[in-house]
Amino acid sequence: VTVDIKGMEYHFDNPEEAKKFAERMAKELGGELKVENGTLKVE
């Protein structure tokens, strides 16, 4: 699973970990979490 945090890509084997990480980063950065082509994106 790929997580894109404002252009920086992180790769996770575990989808649950990827989702938790993306949600935490969205909250910390005040960004919006989206799913695009199987990639979790925070913008």
Results as ranks from 00 to 15, higher is better:
Asp13Ala: 12
Val42Arg: 00
Val1Asp: 02
Leu40Gly: 04
Asp13Pro: 09
Lys34Phe: 11
Val35Leu: 12
Glu23Arg: 02
Lys41Gln: 06
Val42Ile: 12
Met25Phe: 05
Ala22Trp: 06
Gly31Phe: 11
His11Gln: 07
Asn14Met: 03
Leu33Val: 15
Gly7Ile: 02
Leu40Met: 09
Leu33Thr: 05
Glu16Cys: 09
Val3Lys: 00
Ala22Glu: 04
Met8Ser: 08
Arg24Glu: 14
Leu40Phe: 12
Leu33Asn: 03
Glu17Ala: 10
Glu28Tyr: 09
Glu28Leu: 12
Glu23His: 03
Asn37Val: 06
Phe12Trp: 01
Glu28Pro: 02
Leu29Gln: 06
Glu32Ala: 12
Glu43Gly: 10
Asp4Cys: 15
Lys19Ala: 10
Ala22Leu: 07
Glu43His: 13
Glu17Gln: 08
Val42Cys: 06
Gly38Cys: 07
Lys41Asp: 04
Asn14Lys: 05
Asp4Lys: 14
Phe12Val: 00
His11Pro: 02
Thr39Ser: 10
Gly31Tyr: 12
Ala18Val: 00
Phe21Cys: 05
Asp13Ile: 10
Asp13Cys: 10
Pro15Phe: 15
Pro15Thr: 08
Ala22Cys: 08
Lys34Glu: 04
Leu29Ile: 08
Glu23Val: 06
Val35Pro: 04
Gly38Gln: 06
Lys6Cys: 15
Lys41Thr: 10
Glu17Trp: 04
Gly30Asn: 12
Val35Lys: 07
Met25Arg: 03
Lys20Ala: 14
Asn37Arg: 04
Phe21Lys: 00
Glu16Pro: 00
Leu29Tyr: 08
Val1Thr: 12
Val3Glu: 00
Gly31Trp: 13
Lys27His: 12
Glu16Ile: 09
Phe21Glu: 02
Leu40Cys: 09
Pro15Gly: 07
Lys41Asn: 04
Lys6Pro: 02
Leu29Ser: 06
Glu43Asp: 11
Lys19Glu: 08
Gly38Ser: 06
Pro15Met: 15
Gly30Ala: 08
Leu40Asn: 03
Glu23Thr: 04
Val3Gly: 01
Pro15Arg: 09
Val1Lys: 04
Val1Ile: 12
Val3Thr: 01
Leu29Met: 10
Glu32Phe: 15
Ala26Ile: 08
Met25Pro: 02
Glu23Leu: 08
Glu9Ala: 12
Asp4Trp: 15
Gly30Thr: 04
Tyr10Lys: 02
Asn37Gln: 08
Gly38Ile: 05
Glu43Trp: 14
Ile5Leu: 06
Val35Trp: 15
Glu16Gly: 06
Ala26Glu: 08
Thr2Gly: 02
Glu32His: 14
Val35Phe: 14
Glu17Pro: 00
Lys27Cys: 13
Gly31Thr: 07
Glu23Gln: 07
Gly7Asn: 03
Val3Ser: 01
Val35Ser: 09
Gly38Val: 04
Lys20Ile: 12
Asn14Trp: 03
Lys20Met: 10
Lys34Met: 09
Gly31Ser: 07
Lys27Tyr: 13
Ala26Ser: 06
Thr2Lys: 11
Lys6Ser: 14
Lys34Ser: 10
Lys27Thr: 10
Met25Val: 10
Glu16Phe: 09
Leu33Pro: 03
Glu28Ile: 10
Met8Ile: 14
Gly31Cys: 11
Glu17Leu: 07
Lys6Phe: 15
Gly30Phe: 07
Asp13Asn: 11
Gly31Leu: 14
Phe12Ala: 00
Lys34Asn: 07
Lys27Leu: 14
Lys34Gln: 07
Ala22Pro: 00
Val42Ser: 04
His11Lys: 10
Phe21Val: 00
Gly31Pro: 03
Pro15Leu: 14
Glu36Phe: 11
Pro15Ser: 09
His11Glu: 05
Asp13Leu: 10
Lys20Asp: 12
Val35Ala: 08
Met8Val: 14
Lys6Gly: 15
Pro15Ile: 14
Val3Met: 02
Glu17Asn: 05
Glu9Asp: 04
Glu9Pro: 07
Glu23Gly: 00
Ala26Val: 09
Lys41Pro: 04
Arg24Tyr: 14
Ala26Gly: 04
Asp4Gly: 07
Gly31Asn: 04
Tyr10Pro: 01
Lys19Leu: 15
Ile5Thr: 01
Val3Trp: 01
Lys20Ser: 11
Asn14Asp: 14
His11Thr: 09
Lys34Cys: 10
Glu17Met: 07
Gly38Met: 05
Ala26Trp: 09
Phe21Trp: 09
Asn37His: 10
Met8Leu: 12
Phe12Gln: 00
Lys19Thr: 10
Leu40Ala: 04
Glu28His: 06
Met8Asp: 07
Val3Asp: 01
Tyr10Cys: 10
Gly38Trp: 02
Glu16His: 10
Phe12Tyr: 02
Lys19Ser: 07
Glu43Lys: 09
Lys6Arg: 12
Ala22Ser: 02
Glu28Trp: 09
Gly30Ser: 09
Phe21Arg: 00
Lys27Glu: 12
Glu9Gln: 15
Val42Glu: 03
Glu16Ala: 10
Lys19Trp: 15
Lys19Gln: 13
Val42Phe: 05
Asp13Val: 10
Met25Thr: 05
Thr39His: 12
Asp13Gln: 10
Lys20Thr: 09
Lys6Asn: 15
Lys19Arg: 14
Lys34Gly: 04
Ile5Gln: 01
Glu9Ile: 15
Glu28Phe: 07
Leu29Ala: 04
Asp4Glu: 14
Glu16Asn: 07
Asn14Ile: 05
Ala18Thr: 00
Glu9Tyr: 14
Gly31Ile: 11
Gly7Gln: 02
Glu36His: 11
Tyr10Met: 03
Lys20Trp: 07
Asp4Gln: 15
Lys19Met: 15
Thr39Met: 13
Ala22Phe: 05
Ala18Lys: 00
Val3Gln: 01
His11Gly: 02
Ala18Gly: 08
Ala22Tyr: 03
Glu28Gly: 02
Phe21His: 01
Ala26Tyr: 05
Phe12Pro: 00
Glu28Val: 08
Thr39Glu: 06
Thr2Gln: 05
Gly7Pro: 02
Gly7Arg: 01
Phe12Ile: 01
Ile5Pro: 00
Val1Pro: 03
Glu23Pro: 00
Glu16Tyr: 09
Gly7Tyr: 03
Thr2Leu: 10
Lys27Pro: 01
Val3Ile: 05
Glu36Met: 10
Asp4Arg: 13
Asn37Tyr: 06
Glu32Gly: 06
Leu33Lys: 02
Glu36Leu: 12
Leu33Asp: 03
Glu9Arg: 14
